[in-house]
Design a protein around this nucleic acid. Structure first.
Lengths: 219, 219
DNA sequence: CAGCTCATGTTAACAGCGCTAACATGGCGC
DNA sequence: GCGCCATGTTAGCGCTGTTAACATGAGCTG
């Protein structure tokens, strides 16, 4: 039985006891190593020390495991964004920039999660938990947008949803194109974080939020 | 021989004559239908009416076909962007917005190409042609950035590369998150094109390029 | 504690995939 | 007309996802 671990770290009997968790961890590791396509149901089972058919007791198919990983990714993503935003303390601008850095930090530090969430082709409604976690993550961006908009005079307020979408799009665009651990698809003269920071400063300036007479060049 | 077409549209002998082209077309169709992961070397061969091993006479492996599709995608992408930019005529602002619409139009109208280019995980240096085509496509964005920057007074000019990266990031972010033919990952109250247009207007406003501050340009 | 149940594991099997080696065909240059 | 070799085919390897049939034993029930 070549699939058995040669020296089981945690000897077990017929039943594993914690297989679902271990499969998710194995999947996360494999996605991190070889990308969401290289990830294999069979290999995850092998890493967990069970037969190739065992995972089917916990996930309908490979896609459901992927969706589970993505959902967990959105949950920790949401936690990170929420912690960074910290309800806009001490002031919305400071908290907002912290939020942007947290976004990129997540993409950089958790490439496996980010991959499962945005590159594996998992549809957002693969499961209610996934959808809910993604919505909660996005809610942080929207909340930040609202707090910043509140500083504008009544007549000049853009729709908060639109602004949140812009923030998300630029963050995701930078993360996807330049922000991965491998340096991204193209070498850059500046870091992804700096790029996002500068882009967001310009965008906010365009809305009328920000240092009044600041030059567009960000430092 | 079940892989043979029941009624070959173009009857052929032992040799196909145009297999490489037909494989690329088949791959493009399959990627469009089932995404870059669903695409299969064997099925492309089936569609072309040849045996599953025939494609290996034209591509080292599956990844090389994918890279070829991506390279062709970047070539037609570059052509579309170049046509839209049209050397900045009649004026950079007009041409720039045309460029943005062309970007989204490509992502929307050629989902198979866009998928192969940005979602299939093909590394940009998979082939020199790929890298070159991608660079030429990006050069259009950079050229547009430079033309717009030239309208700013000397002291307030951001780096053109940075600006081009911001444009690319926002375009790609919107295309990836909301701009696909299936409506994207999330229903929106506005179209992707409108979202990008608004985002770019705000961004340009932040740089000091906008309706109000447009400097009369002697030309 | 005996016994039953059923969640969770295993084995065996199928079809399909990427890929390779060995062989077949026939278009084209000599 | 002949032979080379690009291009096709066949057969087969090991892998994958997935299912069906069977095995185990943890935990409830009496």
């Amino acid at each position: 039985m070549s699939w058995k671990r040669d020296r089981p770290e945690t000897p077990r009997g017929y039943h594993h006891g914690n297989l679902k968790e271990e499969l998710v961890k194995a999947a996360l590791g494999l996605i991190g190593e070889k990308g969401p396509n290289g990830f294999t149901f069979a290999e995850a089972a092998r890493m967990a020390g069970v037969s190739p058919a065992a995972p089917y007791r916990h996930f309908r198919d490979r896609d459901e495991l992927l969706a589970d990983v993505a959902a967990r990714g959105f949950q920790t993503f949401e936690a990170a964004l929420s912690r960074a935003w910290d309800q806009g303390r001490p002031d919305p601008e400071t908290a907002f920039h912290r939020l942007g850095r947290a976004y990129l930090a997540f993409a950089h530090d958790e490439p496996a999660y980010y991959s499962a969430m945005f590159e594996a082709g998992v549809p957002l409604d693969a499961s209610p938990e996934l959808r809910a976690a993604a919505d909660r993550a996005f809610a942080n961006l929207r909340q930040a947008a609202e707090a910043l908009i509140a500083r504008l005079p009544q007549g000049k307020r853009p729709p908060a949803l639109m602004m949140a979408l812009h923030i998300w799009a630029m963050s995701h665009g930078i993360a996807a194109l330049f922000g991965r651990a491998d340096g991204g698809r193209r070498p850059l003269p500046m870091s992804a974080a700096e790029l996002l920071e500068a882009g967001m400063l310009i965008y906010l300036q365009g809305l009328g939020i920000g240092p009044e007479t600041a030059a567009p060049q960000a430092g």
